[in-house]
Simulated scan of single mutants.
Amino acid sequence: MFPDLTRDDVFRIETRRLWLRWPTARDRDAILKLAGDPAVAAMLARVPNPLPAQVVDAFVLQARSDNTAGTGLTLALAPRAAPASLIGIVSIEGSAGAEPELGYWLGRSHWGTGLMREAVSALCQAYFAYAGGAELTASARSANPASRRVLEACGFVHTGTGMRPFPARGEDLPVDLFRLDRRRWQTLGTEPALTEAA
């Protein structure tokens, strides 16, 4: 799904305020603290609360493996002024027989700053411009209007509602479904700055 350009851990996307870079083992403590926050974890399908360290270790290894294989792209969000300091995650994951799906989370202290919109927009631009993507899907818990606003601000179109499994919550929960296709993306703006060297 993703080209050679993204398959090396020196790959990054730079935005006005962020570096989007590969997650590393050094991000473990930040992920434990930020994704393990009950308010963040409650909106995520696969993040248990409490969040065990071994789950984070497995996540980082899987993300790096998928990035290397080009089957997905998971990037850590870090402020440009502190590129080693993870504040969230944004990803595009593929699965057999399904359109690639966007996912993301941001540490609670950064909510309401527009950083997630900036990160999602940059990753979508990279997906369509450099990976040749045709369509992206996304979903947001119906109880999470801020996540829906991020998707709408990045050009995603609401396509309906449904129920999705949230294994870490132990149940299926209602979600709003979204879609962004190449044609719509082409009307949205410019490409991000991509950097291949650290």
Rank of each mutant, 00 (worst) to 15 (best):
Ser65Gly: 04
Val90Glu: 01
Ser109Arg: 15
Ala45Pro: 12
Ala153Glu: 06
Glu135Leu: 08
Ala76Gly: 05
Leu106Thr: 00
Ala129Leu: 11
Leu44Gln: 15
Arg28Tyr: 06
Ile89Gln: 03
Leu75Gly: 03
Ala138Asp: 06
Pro165Gly: 11
Ala69Glu: 03
Asp57Leu: 02
Ala153Lys: 11
Arg141Met: 15
Arg21Asn: 03
Asn49Val: 08
Gly114Gln: 06
Ala53Ser: 12
Leu20Trp: 03
Glu135Gln: 05
Gly162Ile: 01
Leu180Arg: 10
Leu102Met: 02
Asp9Thr: 04
Trp19Arg: 09
Val150Tyr: 12
Arg26Thr: 10
Gly70His: 07
Ile13Leu: 00
Ala78His: 11
Val47Cys: 14
Ser85Gln: 13
Leu34Gln: 09
Arg184Val: 11
Trp185Cys: 02
Ala45Glu: 14
Met1Ala: 05
Ser91Gly: 06
Leu44Thr: 13
Gly114Asn: 03
Leu180Ser: 06
Gly88Phe: 03
Leu73Asn: 07
Glu171Pro: 08
Phe59His: 09
Arg7Ala: 04
Pro3Cys: 02
Thr187Asp: 10
Ala96Tyr: 03
Asp8Trp: 03
Leu180Ala: 10
Asp8Glu: 10
Arg46Pro: 10
Pro83Lys: 04
Leu151Val: 11
Phe178Trp: 13
Ala63Val: 04
Arg64Cys: 01
Leu61Val: 13
Ala53Trp: 08
Pro145Gly: 14
Pro79Asn: 00
Arg17Ile: 02
His110Asn: 14
Ala98Arg: 12
Ala98Thr: 13
Ala39Ile: 11
Ala119Trp: 00
Ala122Asp: 06
Trp111Thr: 10
Leu51Ser: 10
Ala131Gln: 00
Gly72Asn: 00
Ser139Met: 08
Gly162Pro: 04
Asp27Ile: 02
Leu18Gly: 06
Glu196Gly: 01
Val120Ala: 10
Gln125Thr: 02
Gln125Ala: 03
Gly170Asn: 11
Leu194Val: 15
Pro50Met: 11
Thr113Trp: 14
Arg141Lys: 13
Thr161Ser: 13
Gly107Gln: 07
Thr74His: 01
Glu93Arg: 14
Pro145Thr: 15
Val47Ser: 14
Trp19Val: 15
Thr161Asn: 05
Ala53His: 05
Val175Ile: 14
Arg16Asp: 15
Phe178Glu: 04
Leu61Met: 08
Leu86Gln: 00
Thr24Cys: 09
Ile31Glu: 05
Asn49Thr: 11
Asp9Arg: 07
Phe128Leu: 04
Tyr104Gln: 01
Val150Met: 12
Arg184Pro: 10
Gly132Tyr: 05
Gly133Met: 02
Ala146Phe: 06
Leu77His: 10
Leu73Gly: 05
Ile31Cys: 12
Leu73Cys: 01
Glu118Ile: 08
Pro50Tyr: 01
Met43Asn: 07
Val90His: 05
